[in-house]
Simulated scan of single mutants.
Amino acid sequence: MTKVLVLYYSRSGNTRKLAQQLARGIESQGVEAVLRTVPELPSYTDGKTPAHSASDPFVTRQDLLDCDGLALGSPVRFGNMAAPLKHFIDSTSAEWLSGALIDKPAAVFGAGSMLHGGQETTLLTMTVPLLHHGMILVGVPHSESALHTTQGGGSPYGASSVSDAQTPLLADEKKIANALGRRLASLARTLNPTSS
């Protein structure tokens, strides 16, 4: 069966909410969504317990090798991905050297707590290592009607949300994340027909 790895880091739970929406879109296409997260970095939390504890398993190297597509998600950190996710991505040199991710489709998603807080630059900077891995980037086309009505997150670069930990995702943010998941799954199945 075709598998899409939904790999994210979530401190408050907002990025995880988006990951779940992408997973729903992926699975609506008959593709398996494999949700994984990364561990905290001790220096990142200053020894404090994180506000959110993810219930999804930590990613393994085998998850990367087994996936037919990848969705990468992070909270916004000064317009960039969060350190725990970057730490994991920086450790994927062996997969880069072996070409394990070449020609697999990839998408990005992210969550921030305020408008104009760096959501789009976070999405764009997450694409850079994916390009180095030879992945094929998947965005949200303007044919997705929610892009025209959203009062929160979402852009052609990927799914995003603008909310605090207690606020649910907006309806348009959910629609955009679902649409991105559907598109990623469809391309994963098309580009890797032997996995279907």
Rank of each mutant, 00 (worst) to 15 (best):
F58C: 02
L85D: 10
H52F: 05
T45F: 10
E95T: 04
G99I: 15
A51F: 14
A83C: 03
Y44S: 13
K48I: 01
E95Y: 04
L35W: 04
N80I: 06
N80V: 10
R77I: 07
E40D: 07
S53D: 07
T37N: 08
R36H: 04
S53F: 11
W96P: 11
S43K: 13
F78H: 13
P39V: 08
P42S: 04
P75S: 00
H52R: 09
A54Y: 02
P75V: 11
L97H: 09
V38F: 03
L101G: 11
L41K: 07
E40V: 15
A82V: 14
S43A: 14
T49S: 15
V59N: 06
L85A: 08
H52C: 05
D68T: 00
I89S: 00
S43T: 13
E40Y: 04
D66R: 07
D63W: 00
P57T: 04
V59K: 08
M81I: 09
T45R: 07
N80W: 08
L72H: 00
D56T: 00
T92I: 13
G47S: 07
P39E: 10
R36M: 07
L65N: 14
E40I: 06
G47C: 02
C67T: 00
V38C: 06
G47L: 00
S53P: 00
D63A: 06
D46A: 11
S93T: 07
S91K: 02
D63E: 06
D90K: 01
L72P: 01
L35K: 05
A71D: 05
A100T: 09
G69I: 05
L64I: 08
L72S: 03
L65Q: 14
A94R: 02
I102V: 15
G79W: 12
D103W: 15
T49Q: 00
L70C: 08
L41C: 06
H52V: 03
L41E: 04
T45H: 03
R61Y: 13
T49L: 10
P75G: 02
N80A: 05
G99M: 15
R77E: 10
P57I: 03
R36C: 04
D90R: 00
T37C: 01
L65I: 13
G79L: 13
P84K: 08
Y44V: 10
P75Q: 02
L64W: 14
V38T: 14
E95W: 08
A51S: 11
G99E: 15
G99S: 12
L101Y: 01
T60Q: 08
G99L: 13
E40Q: 10
H87G: 09
D56C: 11
K104C: 14
D63Q: 03
Y44T: 12
R61G: 12
F58Q: 11
C67F: 02
R77Y: 09
T60S: 14
A83L: 06
L97A: 15
K104E: 13
R36G: 02
D90A: 01
F58L: 12
T45G: 12
D56P: 00
P50D: 01
V76Q: 06
V76H: 05
R36N: 03
D63P: 08
H52P: 08
V76G: 13
A71P: 02
R61Q: 15
R77H: 10
A83V: 09
P84G: 07
V76Y: 05
F58D: 08
S93Y: 11
L101T: 01
K86H: 12
P42D: 05
K104G: 12
S91P: 06
A100W: 14
M81G: 14
N80T: 09
M81Y: 00
I102E: 15
